[in-house]
Computed example of a mutant assay.
Amino acid sequence: MELVQKYFPYLSDKQIDQLSSLKELYAYWNAYVNIISKKTFSDFYQKHVLFCLGIAKVFSFFTGSRVMDLGTGGGFPGIPLSIVFPQAEFILVDSISKKIKVVEKIIKSLHLKNAHAICIRAEKLENRFDFFVSRAVAKTSKIHNWIKNKYRYKSNSKIQNGSLYLKGGELSKELKEFPHAIQYPLYDFFQEPFFITKKVIWISNL
Protein backbone atom coordinates (compact mmCIF):
# COMPACT_ATOMS: atom_id res chain seq x y z
CA MET A 1 0.00 0.00 0.00
CA GLU A 2 2.98 2.29 0.54
CA LEU A 3 3.62 2.05 -3.19
CA VAL A 4 0.17 3.42 -3.97
CA GLN A 5 0.59 6.28 -1.51
CA LYS A 6 3.97 7.09 -3.05
CA TYR A 7 2.33 7.90 -6.38
CA PHE A 8 -1.03 9.14 -5.04
CA PRO A 9 -0.12 11.29 -2.01
CA TYR A 10 -3.37 13.29 -2.19
CA LEU A 11 -5.68 10.43 -1.20
CA SER A 12 -8.08 11.05 1.68
CA ASP A 13 -7.99 8.99 4.87
CA LYS A 14 -11.13 7.19 3.73
CA GLN A 15 -9.60 6.30 0.36
CA ILE A 16 -6.42 5.08 2.04
CA ASP A 17 -8.45 2.90 4.40
CA GLN A 18 -10.45 1.44 1.50
CA LEU A 19 -7.38 0.71 -0.62
CA SER A 20 -5.55 -0.71 2.40
CA SER A 21 -8.42 -3.15 2.96
CA LEU A 22 -8.24 -4.59 -0.55
CA LYS A 23 -5.46 -7.12 -0.10
CA GLU A 24 -7.03 -8.73 2.95
CA LEU A 25 -10.44 -8.87 1.27
CA TYR A 26 -9.02 -10.44 -1.88
CA ALA A 27 -6.92 -12.90 0.10
CA TYR A 28 -10.08 -14.07 1.86
CA TRP A 29 -12.25 -14.41 -1.24
CA ASN A 30 -9.47 -15.82 -3.40
CA ALA A 31 -9.48 -18.89 -1.17
CA TYR A 32 -13.02 -19.62 -2.39
CA VAL A 33 -12.97 -18.31 -5.96
CA ASN A 34 -9.80 -17.94 -8.01
CA ILE A 35 -10.09 -14.31 -9.04
CA ILE A 36 -6.40 -13.36 -8.79
CA SER A 37 -3.47 -15.51 -9.85
CA LYS A 38 -1.49 -16.77 -6.86
CA LYS A 39 1.67 -15.95 -8.82
CA THR A 40 0.86 -12.24 -8.74
CA PHE A 41 -0.76 -11.98 -5.33
CA SER A 42 2.50 -11.23 -3.52
CA ASP A 43 2.75 -8.09 -5.69
CA PHE A 44 -0.93 -7.27 -5.24
CA TYR A 45 -0.59 -3.52 -4.89
CA GLN A 46 1.84 -3.15 -7.79
CA LYS A 47 0.40 -5.55 -10.35
CA HIS A 48 -3.26 -5.02 -9.62
CA VAL A 49 -4.07 -1.83 -7.73
CA LEU A 50 -1.35 0.54 -8.98
CA PHE A 51 -1.56 -0.84 -12.53
CA CYS A 52 -5.29 -0.09 -12.59
CA LEU A 53 -4.73 3.36 -11.11
CA GLY A 54 -2.49 4.12 -14.05
CA ILE A 55 -5.73 5.30 -15.67
CA ALA A 56 -5.98 7.97 -12.97
CA LYS A 57 -2.56 9.30 -14.00
CA VAL A 58 -3.75 10.16 -17.50
CA PHE A 59 -7.47 10.82 -17.05
CA SER A 60 -9.98 12.20 -14.53
CA PHE A 61 -13.62 11.14 -14.61
CA PHE A 62 -15.97 14.07 -14.22
CA THR A 63 -18.73 14.28 -11.64
CA GLY A 64 -21.75 12.25 -12.67
CA SER A 65 -20.00 10.31 -15.42
CA ARG A 66 -21.07 6.71 -15.95
CA VAL A 67 -18.25 4.25 -16.52
CA MET A 68 -18.44 0.58 -17.53
CA ASP A 69 -15.66 -1.74 -16.39
CA LEU A 70 -15.91 -4.30 -19.17
CA GLY A 71 -14.88 -7.84 -18.20
CA THR A 72 -14.14 -6.78 -14.64
CA GLY A 73 -13.15 -10.28 -13.48
CA GLY A 74 -12.33 -9.78 -9.81
CA GLY A 75 -13.15 -6.08 -9.91
CA PHE A 76 -10.23 -4.55 -11.79
CA PRO A 77 -9.89 -1.78 -12.71
CA GLY A 78 -13.37 -0.80 -11.51
CA ILE A 79 -12.94 -1.14 -7.74
CA PRO A 80 -9.67 0.83 -7.40
CA LEU A 81 -11.00 3.50 -9.76
CA SER A 82 -14.31 3.80 -7.91
CA ILE A 83 -12.36 4.46 -4.71
CA VAL A 84 -10.23 7.18 -6.30
CA PHE A 85 -13.15 8.74 -8.24
CA PRO A 86 -16.12 8.70 -5.81
CA GLN A 87 -17.89 11.35 -7.91
CA ALA A 88 -18.32 8.96 -10.86
CA GLU A 89 -20.54 5.89 -11.19
CA PHE A 90 -18.90 2.58 -12.07
CA ILE A 91 -20.77 -0.44 -13.46
CA LEU A 92 -18.61 -3.56 -13.22
CA VAL A 93 -19.67 -6.11 -15.83
CA ASP A 94 -18.67 -9.74 -16.28
CA SER A 95 -20.41 -12.85 -17.61
CA ILE A 96 -18.99 -15.19 -14.93
CA SER A 97 -21.45 -15.19 -12.03
CA LYS A 98 -19.10 -16.55 -9.35
CA LYS A 99 -16.70 -13.67 -9.95
CA ILE A 100 -19.46 -11.08 -9.89
CA LYS A 101 -20.73 -12.47 -6.57
CA VAL A 102 -17.27 -11.91 -5.07
CA VAL A 103 -17.10 -8.41 -6.53
CA GLU A 104 -20.47 -7.62 -4.96
CA LYS A 105 -19.19 -8.79 -1.56
CA ILE A 106 -16.08 -6.64 -1.84
CA ILE A 107 -18.08 -3.58 -2.91
CA LYS A 108 -20.34 -4.07 0.10
CA SER A 109 -17.40 -4.53 2.50
CA LEU A 110 -15.83 -1.30 1.25
CA HIS A 111 -19.16 0.62 1.50
CA LEU A 112 -18.76 1.81 -2.07
CA LYS A 113 -21.92 3.67 -3.06
CA ASN A 114 -20.73 4.46 -6.60
CA ALA A 115 -19.88 0.92 -7.74
CA HIS A 116 -22.32 -1.76 -8.89
CA ALA A 117 -21.64 -5.25 -10.25
CA ILE A 118 -23.76 -6.92 -12.94
CA CYS A 119 -23.48 -10.45 -14.31
CA ILE A 120 -24.12 -10.04 -18.04
CA ARG A 121 -22.26 -9.98 -21.33
CA ALA A 122 -21.31 -6.38 -22.07
CA GLU A 123 -22.86 -6.38 -25.53
CA LYS A 124 -26.25 -7.35 -24.04
CA LEU A 125 -26.37 -4.53 -21.52
CA GLU A 126 -28.77 -1.83 -22.71
CA ASN A 127 -27.44 1.01 -20.55
CA ARG A 128 -25.38 3.77 -22.11
CA PHE A 129 -22.09 5.09 -20.74
CA ASP A 130 -19.74 8.02 -20.97
CA PHE A 131 -16.60 5.93 -20.70
CA PHE A 132 -15.41 2.34 -20.81
CA VAL A 133 -12.41 0.88 -19.00
CA SER A 134 -10.91 -2.57 -19.31
CA ARG A 135 -7.80 -4.52 -18.35
CA ALA A 136 -6.56 -6.79 -21.15
CA VAL A 137 -9.91 -8.53 -21.68
CA ALA A 138 -9.69 -8.92 -25.45
CA LYS A 139 -8.27 -7.35 -28.60
CA THR A 140 -9.19 -3.70 -28.99
CA SER A 141 -11.18 -4.30 -32.20
CA LYS A 142 -13.34 -6.91 -30.48
CA ILE A 143 -14.04 -4.67 -27.51
CA HIS A 144 -14.89 -1.81 -29.86
CA ASN A 145 -17.55 -3.93 -31.55
CA TRP A 146 -19.10 -4.69 -28.16
CA ILE A 147 -19.36 -1.07 -27.05
CA LYS A 148 -19.59 1.10 -30.19
CA ASN A 149 -23.34 1.65 -29.81
CA LYS A 150 -23.36 2.03 -26.03
CA TYR A 151 -22.13 5.58 -25.58
CA ARG A 152 -24.40 8.24 -24.14
CA TYR A 153 -25.68 10.57 -26.84
CA LYS A 154 -24.81 13.65 -24.81
CA SER A 155 -21.91 14.04 -22.45
CA ASN A 156 -22.12 16.02 -19.20
CA SER A 157 -18.68 17.44 -19.84
CA LYS A 158 -16.47 18.95 -22.50
CA ILE A 159 -14.42 15.75 -22.29
CA GLN A 160 -15.14 13.53 -25.28
CA ASN A 161 -16.63 10.14 -24.49
CA GLY A 162 -14.27 7.23 -25.07
CA SER A 163 -12.53 4.16 -23.73
CA LEU A 164 -9.39 3.50 -21.71
CA TYR A 165 -7.61 0.16 -21.87
CA LEU A 166 -4.80 -1.18 -19.71
CA LYS A 167 -2.45 -3.08 -21.98
CA GLY A 168 1.09 -4.41 -22.18
CA GLY A 169 3.64 -5.09 -24.89
CA GLU A 170 3.83 -4.02 -28.52
CA LEU A 171 0.46 -2.73 -29.72
CA SER A 172 1.09 -1.19 -33.15
CA LYS A 173 -0.54 -4.08 -35.02
CA GLU A 174 -3.51 -4.27 -32.66
CA LEU A 175 -4.13 -0.53 -32.88
CA LYS A 176 -3.62 -0.24 -36.64
CA GLU A 177 -7.32 0.38 -37.29
CA PHE A 178 -7.40 3.02 -34.51
CA PRO A 179 -5.02 5.69 -35.88
CA HIS A 180 -6.21 8.28 -33.38
CA ALA A 181 -5.56 6.08 -30.34
CA ILE A 182 -3.20 7.65 -27.81
CA GLN A 183 -0.73 5.47 -25.91
CA TYR A 184 0.39 6.58 -22.46
CA PRO A 185 3.41 4.55 -21.23
CA LEU A 186 2.98 3.93 -17.52
CA TYR A 187 6.74 3.92 -17.02
CA ASP A 188 6.47 7.70 -17.41
CA PHE A 189 4.57 7.73 -14.11
CA PHE A 190 5.70 4.62 -12.21
CA GLN A 191 9.39 3.79 -11.81
CA GLU A 192 9.10 0.03 -11.12
CA PRO A 193 10.37 -2.31 -13.91
CA PHE A 194 6.97 -4.02 -14.08
CA PHE A 195 5.61 -0.92 -15.83
CA ILE A 196 8.20 -0.71 -18.61
CA THR A 197 5.86 -2.38 -21.13
CA LYS A 198 2.53 -1.28 -19.59
CA LYS A 199 0.34 1.38 -21.15
CA VAL A 200 -3.00 3.11 -20.95
CA ILE A 201 -4.68 3.37 -24.36
CA TRP A 202 -7.17 6.19 -24.89
CA ILE A 203 -9.59 5.94 -27.83
CA SER A 204 -12.20 8.62 -28.42
CA ASN A 205 -15.62 7.42 -29.60
CA LEU A 206 -15.48 9.85 -32.53
Rank of each mutant, 00 (worst) to 15 (best):
F131V: 00
A136V: 07
D17K: 14
Y153W: 14
D130L: 08
V33Y: 06
L81A: 07
K148I: 06
V67S: 12
I96L: 03
D17C: 00
S65R: 08
H180A: 14
M68R: 02
K105H: 07
G54V: 02
N205H: 14
D188G: 08
I106E: 00
I100M: 05
L53M: 15
A31R: 15
K98W: 13
K6L: 06
E126C: 14
S21M: 14
P9D: 07
K14I: 01
S97I: 10
Y7M: 04
K108A: 10
Q191V: 08
A56S: 15
T72P: 11
L164A: 04
C119L: 13
L81G: 04
D188M: 03
V84R: 05
V137S: 10
K124G: 03
R152M: 11
G162V: 00
K158G: 13
L70Y: 01
K47A: 06
L112V: 12
F41W: 06
L3F: 09
D13Y: 02
G64D: 13
M68L: 15
Q183S: 12
I83M: 07
G169M: 03
D94P: 05
V93Q: 02
L19R: 00
D43S: 13
H180K: 14
L81C: 03
V200I: 05
K6H: 09
D94Q: 03
I196C: 13
E104Y: 07
G78V: 05
F85I: 03
S163G: 08
F178R: 01
V67L: 14
L53C: 07
L50F: 04
E177R: 09
